[in-house]
Simulated scan of single mutants.
Amino acid sequence: MRYSGIGGQAVMEGVMMKNQEKYAVAVRKPDQEIVVETSTYEGLIKNKKIRNMPILRGVFSFIESLVLGMKTLTFSASFFEEEEEEKSGSRKAEKRAGAKKPAPTEEEQKKKEKRQENALMGGTVAISIVLAVAIFMVLPYYISVFFQRFITSQTLLALLEGVIRLTIFIGYVAAISLMPDIKRVYMYHGAEHKCINCIEQGMDLTVENVRKSSRLHKRCGTSFLLIVMLISIVFFLFIRVDNRILQLLLRLVSIPVIAGVSYEFIRLAGRSDHMLVNLFSKPGLLLQRITTREPDDSMIEVGIASVEAVFDWKAYVKEIREQA
């Protein structure tokens, strides 16, 4: 399999695909039409030397994926809130009609909405990070502290904390997979992976070929998060101080480094078919059996539309065949 450089994520009734700074969101609207929006996202750090530094690039990539992911999810969700927006719009019009001050111009309204969207997105991302740290890092630590009255070995306590963290994470992923809306998101997640696997295997991007492709991929965000959980166990084995508050703070401070190291492995996994790399990728691929589902043909069509908006797969596949 050859590295294509494209990646993506599932959104509400759609797929987002990203190729370098360009990305596209394809959504199946309630009337069954596929709408595709393309745009660019240059990221948080414009300096390429800094943003491409090992470890640091993983931290930047993680934060940027959260921001872009939230933005594309908001876009996809907008197609399923039209009735509410229409009602809201009519109420605003009535208020403006009865108000003495003139209504804002269309340009002013767009700027205001953009500022509100950016503020909301920034706040949502920040809250998401805080909650994730609290649930998957802080909570397992304090649960393991409870067992200190029974276990004196710091190594065993660190391993127990890691097991608790993995249990909470996998339990969370499995629990939300039972929700009907999440099941459909997981199906689109499968469509995203199958489209990428199809072209990276050198096959034409057709519904039939995508259907035959695997729904599992080594560069998946699910694998990244699991690697974070596993690498944190190794890191936390070496954090040994008597003060609990300091011990927790050192764990929190090390999270960006853990994320950076995990990103480097996922990056390597996407470019290598070495036996050891494939072996260490197995746990993430197994977890993807929960976070991805087999999509139907209509979902595959959405995935294909998203790929074609940002990636010249025909030239890519031709090059693979010429080098074969």
Rank of each mutant, 00 (worst) to 15 (best):
K112Y: 08
G98L: 05
G122M: 05
Q109K: 10
R96I: 15
S90P: 00
K112F: 07
E113V: 09
K114T: 14
A103S: 13
A97K: 11
K112S: 12
A119Y: 07
K114C: 01
K95W: 01
E108R: 00
K114S: 07
P104Y: 02
S90I: 10
E106R: 11
M121K: 05
E108W: 00
G89V: 01
G122W: 01
L120F: 06
E108L: 01
K100V: 12
A103E: 11
E107V: 10
K111W: 04
P104Q: 02
A93S: 12
G122I: 05
K101H: 08
E106N: 06
G89R: 08
K95N: 06
A99Q: 11
A97E: 13
G98E: 10
K112W: 03
K92T: 02
M121T: 15
Q116M: 11
E106G: 03
R115C: 02
E107D: 08
R115D: 00
K92F: 01
G122K: 04
K95A: 07
E106C: 00
E117H: 12
K110P: 00
P104S: 06
A93W: 03
R96N: 08
K114A: 14
E117F: 15
E113Y: 04
Q109E: 15
L120H: 05
E113T: 09
E117N: 09
K112E: 13
P104H: 02
A119N: 10
A103C: 05
A119G: 05
K112G: 07
A103Y: 01
E113H: 02
P104G: 05
A99G: 11
A97Y: 06
K112D: 06
E107T: 12
Q116E: 13
G89M: 10
K112V: 02
K111A: 13
R96S: 11
E107S: 14
K101Y: 06
M121F: 00
A97N: 02
A99W: 03
E107Q: 12
K100F: 12
K112A: 10
K92P: 01
K114I: 05
E106A: 13
R115N: 12
N118K: 13
K100R: 08
R91T: 14
K110W: 04
Q109V: 08
K110E: 08
R96Q: 14
P104R: 06
A99C: 02
R96L: 14
A93D: 15
A103V: 09
